[in-house]
Design a protein around this nucleic acid. Structure first.
Length: 400
DNA sequence: TCTGGGGTCCTAGGACCC
DNA sequence: TCTGGGGTCCTAGGACCC
């Protein structure tokens, strides 16, 4: 069997949420469409159409600012379920081109095209077939980057958008990357760029000249190694599917900063409910709970606690969350955002059945499994009801 | 400008054990 | 009495990505 030159495509859907809304509603085509929070509320732009971008609007921009720049735009709340279904349809199409798909977000995926030349032709041809397929069957445009590894394919897809195609032939990686700005390097954000600028490094050319040891001293061992590789087009192994740990979290930003303990606790309960039920749904478990607080001045802190056993019930999770809240919040400081999450989430294979017996928490856990079944049947119960419901079925009858 | 919500990965310090 | 190195786990914070 002959060996093949590795070939990866990175596919990015163009202005995905906005493009779906424009496809579904012809009145919106050719117009600025902004998906995200509603003007007047706290929140940001999630995605916007290319027409909106000509006004200077972009992702992650505060919605208030977007509204000032583009008051006549159409503002739409995201319809995530709809977008997820469209995303799944697109992924299905990708499987006709290769069995190796790595979906990295709702609107992005890697496709390994190594050895498919005999079927789809050279990279240009294969990419055009893929783009045509998605346009014809889904009605959306995509941008494709092609290279010998995922890191360069990813940066190639960002090079020309929308409806773009950039191919970086093997051996020309460094030449391609030299055309980019530092901010275009994947994994180099605002802070790293600032630090590089302090050192008078403003271009990729300048970065390539810095010895690996020096980068290590400046950015830490892992950070230095990463920078050394990324500017040379060497893939350190991004998205290799090796997920070491996993976390599940929910957070909520109050419309107005909140110092009403009852309101804060109610929100905390809803968050606990959300993450515990997701844990059950994923058949997973965790011993570590993380509470996140963001105050009125936007300062953010977290506090976490690990137990010697998995947290399995909403009650246990909520009680622990309250304990963390009490230790971190002095009640005079209004809260902007409160978040709750599990970290170090693992699959439940490791649970020893024996230790579940005679455990009072286990009965609660079973009650919650039953509630989960009901929710599957009848849809999500309102959270406020959920709190009463679960407390009302308290198997210990101790009123907690 | 006035900043969502969901994540992953890394660092550094401290506790504890051998 | 003062001293070391390594490993593992936990915690808090921060950079970055979509």
């Amino acid at each position: 069997m002959r060996s093949h030159q590795p070939l990866w495509f990175h596919v990015d859907m163009d202005a995905f949420y906005a493009a779906i809304e424009q496809r579904d509603n012809p009145d919106l085509r050719g117009k600025p469409v902004i998906i995200g929070a509603m003007p007047g509320s706290r929140g940001v732009v999630s995605t916007c159409s290319y027409e909106a971008r000509t006004f200077g609007v972009h992702s992650a921009m505060p919605i208030s600012q977007a509204y000032r720049l583009c008051p006549d735009g159409t503002y739409i709340r995201p319809r995530m379920e709809h977008y997820s279904r469209e995303s799944a349809k697109i992924m299905e199409e990708f499987y006709d081109f290769s069995p190796r798909i790595i979906q990295v977000s709702i609107d992005e995926a890697f496709i390994e095209m190594t050895g498919t030349g005999g079927i789809f032709g050279p990279p240009e041809q294969a990419a055009m077939k893929l783009k045509n397929r998605i346009r014809e069957r889904i009605g959306l445009t995509i941008t494709v980057g092609a290279a010998a590894n995922r890191l360069v394919a990813k940066m190639a897809s960002a090079y020309q958008k929308p409806d773009g195609l950039t191919i970086v032939p093997p051996g020309t990686e460094e030449e391609f990357i030299r055309k980019l700005e530092l901010k275009d390097l994947w994994g180099v954000g605002r802070k790293s760029r600032q630090r590089l600028e302090e050192l008078n490094i403003r271009t990729v050319d300048q970065l390539i000249k810095i010895p690996k040891d020096t980068l290590g001293t400046l950015f830490g061992r892992a950070g230095g190694e990463y920078l050394y590789q990324v500017c040379r087009g060497i893939d350190p192994g991004i998205y290799d599917g090796q997920i070491k740990s996993h976390s599940i979290s929910n957070e909520h930003t109050f419309g107005i900063d909140c110092k009403d303990s009852q309101a804060v606790e109610d929100t905390l309960f809803a968050l606990a409910h959300g993450i515990v039920f997701r844990l059950h749904r994923e058949n997973a478990q965790s011993r570590t709970l993380v509470l996140k607080l963001r105050l009125g001045d936007f300062s953010t802190s977290t506090i976490q606690k690990s137990l010697d056993h998995p947290i399995r019930t909403v009650e246990e999770c909520f009680d622990l969350a309250l304990e963390l809240l009490k230790s971190k919040w002095d009640r005079r400081n209004p809260i902007r955002l409160i978040g709750l999450g599990f970290s170090n989430v693992e699959g439940t294979e490791k649970v020893q059945q024996g230790e579940l017996f005679d455990d009072p928490e286990d009965r609660r856990s079973k009650v919650e499994a039953a509630v989960l079944e009901l929710q599957k049947k009848y849809g999500d119960l309102p959270i406020s009801k959920g709190r009463k419901f679960i407390r009302g079925t308290d198997p210990d009858g101790d009123g907690r």
